[in-house]
Design a protein around this nucleic acid. Structure first.
Lengths: 339, 339
DNA sequence: CAAAAAGACCAAAGCGCTTTGGAAGACTCT
DNA sequence: AGAGTCTTCCAAAGCGCTTTGGTCTTTTTG
């Protein structure tokens, strides 16, 4: 059942039927009702390929997925996706993942824009002065950055959480508890979120006349194993930290294991706070010692990004507004006064 | 730069240029070279929307993503996706995720097929007599099932691992080590993989005159917390198991925590084997006691599924061949003789 | 050497939709 | 009553590609 057939049945032109269905004003309400009714009754669905060709609109949002044998998509992605999907579903949007060589994503971005394959895209895990942001800005496709980039001469729309504030608060809490030697086990410090967290922590320390020494900071990809290694490295120093802030729950697993291996205890010998993106399958309150966290649902962020993308596509949102969400500090048993 | 312009420059018809580019035989090799050369020089890329409309081919593979507030996409998905992306990239295939109400995926499947939105789809986490399989079989779109369904009157193409064999081997090992009371912490037993694992374990036990009692089997969604709860329930019985097989590493985390909470040790009081899908961020050898596993890379499976989908799209693969991959049994410190 | 076959190319008809540029009729206004 | 304005609808022109059904040469064949 296509438009031609439908308009034939109704003894109307394709024009009128198309307009009736798409809510154009220049069609009699009575006629519109008839058309809509007939369309529903015959199960007419406009062919998206044809519509795309005619309008350029695709009803899809894009994401360039870095791939390669050495590339690991981290599990945060899937939670983010859950949220994105929640929203996208209610708005009949699909998501297209375009796999790209991790070292050459630009080609893929150019392709999907040139080919009009999607109406908008989002970017995740941005770095400072991220080339993707500059590129999309140039290409002129609607986009949202999940996270933040820095150091451009222009503004761009993003949704981020207050990583700096979160780790500032975390550090401040630890300092108030009497800790003087804090350490940070961070994610990849080429990414903005990691830089912000470090900055927040530094700010809190500086305010109290303390510092975050080179020996007290690790920056690694966020795996359990790296958390373990980092913790061992930190704790086996001559002047080990008495508190650690950690950028992910998965790394925190490794930290806890290291602490145990070294015959130490939490929070007796070490206070621990980690950032929690809220995974359904791993909860901080279920750690052997309930884990204090800075918490922000990455799933909600996914839904929000989808919402903004939809708004930009339909022209409801314009401009380069960035939004920063506050982060909860949730105190549980893993922090205590300095030993 | 579109076909019209390009053919104009070359003083050829659109027909010939199109054919030259698409490898049709009825064009002079010399001409073809000229065309291909000019196309490359001018960066001509056929507009996919137009091509879609004309051919119905989209160059995309589809996946219906169940969503909803209560739905958790599990982290296996992202690893699978990595593999899929690896392969898809090298073949210029994109993946479109169509979010659907978890309770009504059928509508979405019908939509993407009716609209010709993708060339092929895959299904994951199938259940016995999975309606999706029957549906796709009816709709006649190429598809591959990752996992297996059962109890149809027809065959269908799938790629699965030997879950039954894996857990059979695991149980056999434990029995050989003298264990008599085995338990199983399984995934959702409405899914085929879980049924197969249970079946494998039962088969091994039966062969040795043992049984898997109702009290020694748990079936839960695979979270750390559920692993913990299940383990406590099992171990606090009057006749607790001396060995547990567990369907995921994430649940195994919970099991280990429970064992510790109860003041027991692995493998002294309890032997533990878990299934490992090979996550880069959580490795069995890094458990406090290195974990024995049944191992199969879900990422490789993703690549394989993509490969088969591509083959089916291009007509290289036909028929309903199912393939079952063997699973490695990797013995590490977490298993020992029965206490 | 005429007839048949093969080779190389093209014009035009789709694919199914949106949108432009009217046109016909009904209505208002002086 | 004639001019101007809405309202409502339509024919036809795209969108950019593939594919059908040729035509015109050139080569092969009996």
């Amino acid at each position: 059942m296509n438009l031609k057939q439908l308009s034939h049945m109704l003894a109307l032109s394709q024009t009128t039927v198309s307009r009736a269905l798409n809510g154009y004003p220049e069609v009699n309400e009575e006629t519109r009702r008839r058309v809509i009714d007939a369309a529903k009754r015959h199960g007419y669905r406009p062919n998206p390929s044809a519509r795309r060709l005619a309008t350029g609109k695709t009803g899809m949002i894009g994401y360039v997925l870095p791939t390669g044998a050495a590339v690991e998509i981290d599990p945060h992605f899937v939670e983010f996706l859950s949220g994105l999907g929640d929203y996208a579903r209610s708005h009949e949007l699909d998501l297209v993942l375009s796999p790209a060589d991790a070292d050459d994503q630009e080609t893929t971005y150019r392709r999907i824009v040139a080919n009009r394959q999607v109406d908008a895209v989002y970017i995740s895990s941005p770095r400072p002065v991220d080339r993707r942001v500059a590129l999309l800005n140039t290409l002129g496709i609607p986009f949202i950055v999940h996270g933040r980039s820095e150091g451009f001469g222009f503004d761009y729309p993003f949704t981020d959480i207050d990583n700096e504030g979160a780790f500032h608060e975390a550090a401040r809490l630890l300092i108030q508890l009497g800790h003087r030697r804090l350490a940070l086990i961070n994610g990849d410090d080429r990414e903005t979120f990691a830089i912000h967290r470090e900055r927040g922590m530094r700010r809190a320390l500086t305010a109290s006349g303390l510092t975050l020494g080179e020996r007290h900071i690790c920056s690694v990809t966020m795996t359990e194993e790296n958390g373990y290694r980092a913790a061992r490295r930190l704790l086996e120093q001559s002047e080990p930290p008495t508190a650690i802030a950690c950028s992910s729950l998965i790394m925190a697993l490794g930290v806890v294991r290291a602490v145990r291996d070294l015959g130490l205890t939490i929070p007796g010998d070490l206070s621990l706070i980690a950032h929690d993106d809220v995974f359904p399958w791993l909860k901080p309150e279920n750690f052997s010692v309930p884990l204090s966290t800075t918490r922000s649902s990455i799933r909600l962020a996914g839904a929000r990004v989808a919402e903004r993308l939809a708004a930009r596509i339909s022209g409801l949102e314009e401009g380069a507004r960035g939004e920063v969400w506050p982060v909860d500090l949730v105190v549980r048993g893993s922090v205590a006064g300095a030993p």
